[in-house]
């Protein structure tokens, strides 16, 4: 990957484009980024993207901004991060600046409402599609513990509404303990 002007432009343009379409909350940018940076550009690995998502999720601030910072830093250091922050912040800044000129008309517009209602179903499909792919990949590893962690975390966030920071903390501890005991068992077996 050559880091010339073209690369920086591509990085900025990609984050700008993704941010402009992050409807329905910050999580939507994760599947979009995955498609763009993992599948299309092949700049970042699948597992690494999940790690970056975990970091973005457990840091304060908007998930979309955090994820953009991480991707930018990974690809081009601090300069890359500055570029992706700008790319992520500019679309909402521009769009809201324009809308605030006539925001009651926008809020009450029927056309906007119809488009958004259709889009909502599309956004839901985009996220579920990525989730299905990720779950299939996880099941392919044929490892029981991660599946349990996944189911447990899902119940904790979706049904019990437990704070995500807490869920991340507990799964991290489970993971490190599994690694420790896994090694231990291997050693004593030898």
């Amino acid at each position: 990957m050559k880091k010339d002007i073209k690369f920086y432009y591509k990085l900025f343009a990609a984050t700008f484009y993704l941010s402009a379409f992050t409807f329905g909350g910050g999580f939507v940018i994760i599947p979009l980024m995955r498609k763009k940076f993992v599948d299309q550009y092949k700049w970042i690995e699948e597992k690494e993207m999940l790690d970056l998502t975990a970091i973005a999720q457990s840091s304060p601030g908007a998930i979309a901004v955090n994820a953009a910072i991480l991707v930018g830093y990974r690809l081009a250091g601090v300069i890359g991060a500055m570029l992706t922050i700008l790319g992520t912040v500019l679309p909402p800044l521009l769009i809201l600046s324009v809308i605030s000129l006539a925001y009651t008309q926008f809020r009450d517009s029927l056309i906007v409402r119809y488009v958004l209602r259709g889009m909502q179903a599309g956004v839901a499909a985009v996220i579920i599609d990525v989730v299905v792919t990720m779950v299939i990949d996880l099941l392919k590893e044929r490892n029981v513990l991660p599946v349990f962690v996944m189911i447990g975390s899902f119940v904790a966030t979706f049904f019990l509404h437990i704070n995500v920071v807490f869920v991340i903390l507990v799964s991290g501890i489970i993971g490190s303990m599994a690694m420790y005991y896994g090694k231990h068992i291997k050693k004593s077996g030898e």
């Binding site: 909350g25 597992k47 790690d51 990720m134 899902f154």
Partner: peptide
Amino acid sequence: GVLNGLRPAVIAMIASAGLTL
């Protein structure tokens, strides 16, 4: 080890956000 534990949790959180949508 920590990251191995986080990855399935992240999938679960995205799934939870997706199902809410």
